[in-house]
Design a protein around this nucleic acid. Sequence first.
DNA 1: GAAATCACG
DNA 2: GACGTACGTGATTTCC
Length: 944
Amino acid sequence: MAETPHLYLVDGSAYIFRAYHRLPPLTDPEGTPVGAVYGYTTMLWKLADDLHKADGPTHLAVILDKSSRSFRNEIYDKYKANRPPPPEDLVPQFPLIRDATRAFSLPCIEEPDVEADDMIASYAREAQRQGWNVTIVSSDKDLMQLVGEQDGARIDMLDTMKNARIYIEEVEEKFGVPPEKVGDVLALMGDSVDNIPGIFGVGPKTASRLIAEHGGLTAALDAAEGMKKSKLKERLLEYRADAELSRVLVTLREDCGLPVSLDDMKLDQVPSEPLAAFLGKHGFSSLLKRLEAGNGSPSRTTDLDPAKRDTAGAPANAAGNRQPLPDFPAVDRSTYECVQTLDRLEAWAERAQAARLVAVDTETSSLDCMQCDLVGISLALGANDACYIPLGHGGSDMFAEKPVQIDKAAALKALAPLLANDAVLKVFHNGKYDLNVLARNGVAVSPVDDTMIISFDLDAGRQLDGIGGGHGMDELAERHLGHTCLTFKELCGTGRKAIPFGEVPLDKATEYAAEDADVTWRLYQQLKPRLATEGGTKIYERVDRPLVPVVAQMERHGIKVDRARLARLSEEFAGETARLEKEIHAIAGTEFTVGSPKQLGEVLFVTLGYKGGKKGKSGQYSTDQSVLERLSGEGAPIAAKILEWRQLAKLKSTYTDALQEAINPQTGRVHTSYSLVGAQTGRLSSTDPNLQNIPIRTEIGRQIREAFVAEEGHVLLAADYSQIELRLAAHMADVPSLKEAFAQGEDIHARTAIEMFGEVNRDTRGRAKTINFAILYGISRWGLGGRLGVEADEAQAMIDTYFQRFPGIQKYIVRTLEEVRERGYSETLFGRKTWFPRIGSKNQAERQGSERAAINAPIQGTSADIIKRAMVRMMPALQEAGLGHVRMLLQVHDELVFELPEADVAAASAVIERVMAGAAEPAVSLDVPLGVDIGTGTSWGAAH
DNA sequence: GAAATCACG
DNA sequence: GACGTACGTGATTTCC
């Protein structure tokens, strides 16, 4: 039986607009911009490659817009009237799209006075009538009207950038209605890009709600009469004609003449000419190589093994860097060597020594670098010049033959001189992990570079739609090398069937492990030069790079916790929650899961009938702290009990239970893992467990801090910056009165209260404090009003007063936003960049969110830079003072925690205070002093 | 896996 | 006033 034909219709014009914004501004050898064309070419390549695969194309055609005029201009003269002209360097790429399509020997359809959407609709319906399946390669919302099935023939869509199929479910998810009603929704909401009016003031949410409720456009418009008085009702009545006109405009024509027959769209193997000529002309050399390697053409790939779906494509670089495409050969895992003799290992070490640069990666038995065993080490000296040295494979099955491998101690002894050699640079990806593993195996490593940190310092925050912004190796390989790495999952499986890396056969393990080193080496070549050209050298070399071994050591130190004390607290909390639960059930008159916000909402606002329940977008009542506090204030006895229950349940599950489990059996201490690339502003983050959110704000929670203790004869010392972010704001925004207040050591919130309200008392100081923080976070009158419990108008008046009193603040905000809009990133005093790709978004909420984050980032980020500088300098300074035995254990954003003999407190305090207070110098000289508060005690709680 | 909630600076 | 209301995080729970 012949396979059912499957027609792919590519919406070419729409694609290149998206590709243009997503890809770097590449140019071909003649200087013609070809970034979007490159993206388009790789997309066609992939589609052609899918010939005869499940759901792949048997027929393929590209539809282009010849002109933007159509029948719609006849009935509505303003149709698409306010479209901005396309970007200058996109214009010369339009004709190249046609060239690219012809290069693939594919039909390219463009008709005068017919829009691509209508042509696509006409072809799709015709194919469907003949019983074919159709996939429209586009993400245009207008085309979603076509999705669905008729007589077993289906039309779906494919968004190649997000690699997502769009079918009925996805359409319903987006519009809240089935595809056939999408036109009705579009008619109500309009489209500012195409200048379709819709109903003024009605957006996608309201539009889909109305259509879903009333079943259709006419019914929704008719229903307006019967609605209660509202803005919406008035508008539906007033703009009815606009909506009806819009309905016609958004309707796709399905009866266009078809200039090419469906049969002529049959997809065959793509002939290598004229494709090769086209690729050569525009400098797409990696694709050209691939074409030659593949004996002539893409398509007809029967190789579905994901391990072999290697690509040699150029980078689809979301990060928007302007580097040339990398000139490396495609990753070829068959070139990797499995090193199984000491002779071979020594040969590699010698070559690494000569090369002066080696990428290194370790493989281990688990993700916990404080507990795992070392299973192997891989090295890379160049592209496809990599090896894997297995050291701990086999062993779980005593009867199976153990693979041949070098003795671990002997191998480490052979590698140690190389790893410690100052003249040989060791490049890692997330080196902190490997440093800890190697340190636990008695091997020190220096000097170190880290491609994960480099990526972060270049591209923090740079993620765009559908493209991750992370700094993981697999993601960076895709983004910068166009290469898909083997995944750990593919190798070891997942869930219950997962096997440890040590049980992976050596040939497979070599492919995976050596690839990681190979990719790290390539990423280093690609990313390191960008630091210099993009201004990242300072922050990388002076702050983040030297921080890696410092943080690694802090993690290895860990901190002692008093297990018995935590266990007692757990029991106490368990008893209390059980008691509260009974009381809550008694008041409610029903047994329910107190921990389920869903059930709780029903109990509060239905069973017990309390008023003022608000449902969020998921249709669930909100029962968060603010709601429960309001209810409690209004005299609901159950609310206070629930609040108390919540607090205790949280403390038990997140802290007293979890921390006991986090104690490392080998060291008896808790070792967190800090991420140096977790927070876009440059802060660290802490996981497994998170030691940056241990309770302190409530008395009951503070007991948990008492369980973090010092060793016998030692104390914990906590040193924290006082009001560092406000101090930095005073400096950066240049506010004389605030700077003076800090210089005088005044209470800053009290000073603000005097400036704002003329007097200071508990109330005005509290308000001033709230306003001060609001400023740091990017303010809105609604947000401030909500916090202060006043109307937005009143909040706005306060903001105005604040800006009047401290005009520098407003100037800072305006200047910062202008700069971010212009350059795309914000910058700290030390030159750390954070990117804000959504700062120009048309979506107001999204844009304003970016704006608030952009106002905050330089302040939060500068504070992060300062404490990082202090951390880097801390141990050398202590050592110089004969205090090298003092251990730095924790960092909590503006606080450092140390462990030291009680006798050394005075001497260490002096050094710590000096290093922290002077951490900005000499790179930056602040107009405000940095205050440091220090406390000591046998527990962390007592040190505050 | 998402959503809701809450712990921290 | 379409949307939602302060910045940055991570962990746990319930529920689909």
